[in-house]
Design a protein around this nucleic acid. Structure first.
Lengths: 263, 263
DNA sequence: TAATCTAACAACGA
DNA sequence: CTCGTTGTTAGATT
């Protein structure tokens, strides 16, 4: 996205669903039209489209979204919520599967934008180290599942990825983070990097497409326990169980991921 | 307090329990010594001691406290946490029964002081009207007991007063505020004013003393249902019950204060 | 299946 | 008898 969009000038902005915005439609349209894309970066589930001069479009992918660079080959899907057209006639469409945000924020107000400024460590970033990660866990009384899903800790882990992260670390979702040994913290840290990098290396999840419409290759055959209810654990053969953990579902091997009663 | 302390110059400040402060002991002592009391006002359970120039001492009475003007006749009690001496040798002692705060805030930072700036309506103030009170209830999903105890709604109602306020309004503590009729809202509004003014008129609760050591006259004989477990309801004779409501205890007449199952 | 905000609530500490 | 913090949960959202 960064390479493709950099330098393009926005000539048109269409908001098909105003509820995705943090400002009135007219304000967004008036502000972005005429501005130029300086860069596109990301943190967790957020995209930062930096506009010149002095604005950001912040896009949250919510519970799944398609962000597509439209070409004669790549047709626009149904139910698009947002569309940008550039002065060279190229277009980008945004389609949220359920919920998602497109927020307009002035550069000077970026640090006041709560949803993005509260984001935690970027797991692919240089500051995601065993040291910075361990520090986050200190004194916390929550469970390891709630911890990894909380974007204020590590940004970008969704429920899909949480499943195999916890399995690889051999941790039960309901384990209290306070009870983790140093070895377990390291295993969790490494599992986060492994699972996310595996997905990135394969172009993302198979039910998602990238900016150019290409499907990812991280499909169910790569999952270890996630969404495998009743299947055999790849480690010990025990049947995988689906359990309720807080408001999310968890898939676990009841033998490999033991939740000691005291923890 | 306002009349007695106005114009006095602080010559000494002693902090016997540093945990009551929001600043280091040295900072408080250095700041208040030499300053003069301009006025003493109150809002809810907070006292605002305005110092000249440009400072406030904010005192939260917590779960009961004695704030005493010490004279040869009025000796200082045990376990005082804070003491001020004025240049005319007069003294004030503060003793918290459980917890309480003495906060030092510069005048320009007063609006940034969260505990006092979040306080709701002052029930003895001119802005405590049926209109402003009704507005507070709108769209709230909480219970009437939790609502009246929350200092962000109406400042100054503690659990002692909440008992008879709810009885006078004939409301069960667990009633959802959303289900209150206009008549019930009015009854609640009037009950708050009645109960608090009754206590103020009698110099406060009998287990408290004022600035000059005088006991209040609002004793258990004036309570209608509060702390009267097993006694007869003054309205219908039914035995008063003690029930658990959230984290606080409530004393109710189970006949007069019905909690309709749908509300 | 998936994400986030908000309000209310519970447990805990000071 | 109080209050703040933290975490949990239910409800709502397109």
């Amino acid at each position: 996205m960064n390479k493709t969009l950099k330098g393009k000038r926005i000539s048109k902005a269409e908001v098909l669903q105003p509820k995705i915005l943090n400002v009135p439609v007219a304000k967004l349209v008036k502000t972005v039209v005429g501005r130029t894309v300086e860069s596109v970066t990301s943190k967790g589930k957020w995209l930062f489209v930096k506009l010149q001069p002095r604005y950001f479009l912040l896009i949250n992918l919510g519970m799944g979204a398609e962000l597509l660079y439209l070409t004669p080959k790549l047709k626009e899907p149904e139910k698009v919520q947002f569309r940008l057209t550039f002065s060279d006639k190229s277009r980008v469409a945004v389609r949220f599967w359920w919920f998602g945000y497109v927020h307009l924020v002035a550069e000077k107000d970026l640090s006041a934008h709560k949803m993005t400024s509260a984001l935690g460590l970027e797991p692919t970033g240089a500051d995601f180290t065993i040291g910075s990660f361990s520090k986050l866990l200190r004194g916390r009384k929550t469970t390891v599942k709630a911890f990894v899903l909380d974007q204020k800790n590590v940004a970008g882990i969704g429920n899909v990825y949480a499943q195999d992260i916890l399995f690889r670390a051999r941790l039960h979702p309901n384990r209290k983070v306070q009870t983790l040994s140093e070895t377990e913290v390291k295993a969790l840290f490494n599992a986060i990097k492994t699972v996310l990098n595996d997905s990135i290396g394969l172009g993302g999840l198979a039910y998602e497409v990238d900016f150019y419409g290409r499907k990812g290759k991280f499909d169910e055959s790569k999952f270890l326990v996630g969404y495998k209810t009743g299947k055999a654990c790849p480690e010990c053969g025990t049947r995988i169980e689906k359990i309720k953990t807080g408001s999310t579902a968890s898939y676990i091997c009841p033998k490999c991921q033991v939740w000691a009663s005291e923890s």
